[in-house]
Design a protein around this nucleic acid. Structure first.
Lengths: 253, 253
DNA sequence: GAGTGGTCTAGACCACGCG
DNA sequence: GCGTGGTCTAGACCACTCA
């Protein structure tokens, strides 16, 4: 062929497609705007629908797009920053925090949780379910595990389950002196129950924040919070957190 | 039909497949062991290869598997915890830290970085490239942006680029008094250059940690660190961080 | 060169939201 | 009922690693 060789190592179609779409999103679409449907887009770019979907999936992972079955694909707003590491020495559920207690039950925790709590595998712990909403959207679901031994004076009078019970457990927890907390963040995929609460499909990418609360020389409570990875930016530290959305492909200097 | 209705809402095949594989990984495979290849696995489960791959992709996202083109699919070791938020008031690059300076050049930063640094869009900043290795594996690549105004006394004698230059910039930076730092974590996909350094394919899921270093009432430096999401668990806080790998699907109580 | 995972195709059907 | 995205199939070829 007489054409010049463009690339010795041609990049995959979906990768190129993603770049093209990304630039189009920057210049030609407004937040909330609905994109053409996948079949039309695929035809327009001359690729199979599966290939187009691979590009869309990446853009969704990066928080640029939002896709909803039965509705369509829309341009996502910038990720919301949610504070996670502030109040270095505050218990969960102190007044003014952003979590909404949803439920509480006394059950044997998953083995991994029991190990982290250093409780016997069959020892029951209070499992508080809470949810977090930001800007009117659900952003996180949490399971807070509180060993019964951390809240020995929990009144049997209180409701045996439900939000009231959850608040009672938190109230008792606050009577301990918090000595410290440490957290870890990792990537996961949403379990079915979390996905439902987060308004996503099962398996959606989530940021799992595991926090251990230390009191009386031991782990007094353990929180496993599941944040929507597509819409959230977790902020730690002194103030609000840095706001950098896109780090574009490096330009030639 | 005479058969009993098993599920009103049948879960997708790949989701069920993922569960089955996950349990098999727990019970029948050791870390590092090689799985059968995708074509065999797909045949064994009676699904198309694309469907099997959907399940493998999720397991890889969760850090359970590691796939390498030309080699095969192996059982991944537990994620390594990498400390990110400790030394709340330490500059990057103080002695004993885990980053390896790789390069440094003086360029105009991406627009988003210039905005966060509050510098003019065309003002040149020192861009230090560093890499982080843990347990013999590359885990992160970082770009550290240092405005020239933060290191006014940088000697022109030092090498104009390369690791030595990077160390010189860091050394100058340490002469400022650090007033605080804040970070944000979000999900991203690896750019081509980062992917290469992290030994992954472009687009691989990464955790992007953006840290702003405050001194003299302004942002003295900005770090954008890209961690492999499949192999890393980012730890913050007082001590080591919590170790919970799998949070299995909730059992019926 | 053999075998692996990565990309891509052109279809089909399903589950969901909405009018 | 219609249009959307989500799942699934059965193939093909490519890029890479390693013996």
């Amino acid at each position: 062929m007489g054409t010049t060789q463009l690339e010795t190592v041609p990049e995959p179609k979906y990768w190129h497609l993603k770049t093209v779409l990304s630039e189009a999103l920057d210049s030609e679409f407004a937040v909330g705007e609905i994109l053409p449907n996948e079949r039309d887009l695929a035809a327009r770019f001359g690729v199979a629908r599966a290939t187009l979907r691979q590009a869309l999936e990446q853009l969704e992972l990066e928080g640029r797009l939002q896709r909803r079955r039965g509705v369509g694909t829309t341009v996502a707003p910038p990720r919301v920053g949610v504070a996670v590491g502030t109040e270095q020495h505050a218990w969960p559920g102190v007044s003014g925090d952003v979590w909404q207690p949803a439920d509480c039950e006394l059950t044997a925790p998953p083995a991994a949780v029991a190990a982290a709590l250093e409780t016997a595998p069959d020892e029951a712990v209070h499992t508080v379910r809470r949810s977090r909403v930001s800007h009117g959207q659900p952003v996180a679901a949490e399971l807070l595990y509180v060993p019964a031994s951390s809240v020995p004076d929990l009144s049997a009078i209180d409701a045996p389950s439900g939000p009231a019970r959850a608040r009672a457990v938190l109230r008792e927890l606050h009577r301990l002196e918090l000595e410290g907390r440490d957290s870890a963040v990792e990537l996961g995929s949403a379990r079915a129950d979390d996905a439902k609460e987060l308004d996503r499909l099962p398996g959606a990418p989530v940021l799992v924040v595991t926090t251990r609360f230390l009191a009386a020389g031991r782990t007094a409570a353990l929180s496993v919070a599941t944040y929507r990875a597509d819409t959230c930016r977790l902020t730690f530290g002194d103030s609000g957190g840095v706001e950098i959305h896109q780090t574009p492909e490096r330009r030639a200097s």
